[in-house]
Amino acid sequence: MTAPPSGERPERNHVDLTPTSLSTIDRVVIATLTRDLTSAVVQRLRDDLLARVHEVRARGVVFDVASLYLMDPWEFRALQQTAAMVRLLGARVVLAGLPPQVVEALAALDVDTAGFDATVATVHDALQALGR
């Protein structure tokens, strides 16, 4: 488990906090992340996502991050922690579609990438990884 991110993440220029679209297929929740993960967005994501996971008794969650252009270590840790929360509710978590520039940056900064059950290229692969 990683240490909690310290401090608040400042807002960039967003007013709308709807962080993601959540869709559910066969008890797998797909969270499509489309915007910078500020503190408020992360909190909203957690509230919505965990409620959905609980509601549908999800067996898996896919974080689709393909459309994120940038992800800094703080954002990545926030995502890891959200994954830990989901796993506490008994669902597995797969990270799908990390863009190459993000991977490169995280690797350069030596970020610990643990905390996900699998990391795959596409949502399709993620659904396969979650099986059944």
Binding site: M1, A3, P4, R46, D47, L50, A51, V53, H54, R57, Q81, T82, A84, M85, V86, R87, L88, L89, G90, A91
Partner: peptide
């Protein structure tokens, strides 16, 4: 029987539950 709120609390407090298998509902468990 972990609620979303409790799951958040556990992670935010940095509590390490180690290898414990957790489930949201009794039915799942």
């Amino acid at each position: 029987g972990l609620s979303p709120a409790i799951a958040q609390t556990i992670v935010e407090l940095g509590i390490d539950v180690g290898k414990v298998h957790t489930r949201a509902t009794l039915r799942d468990a």
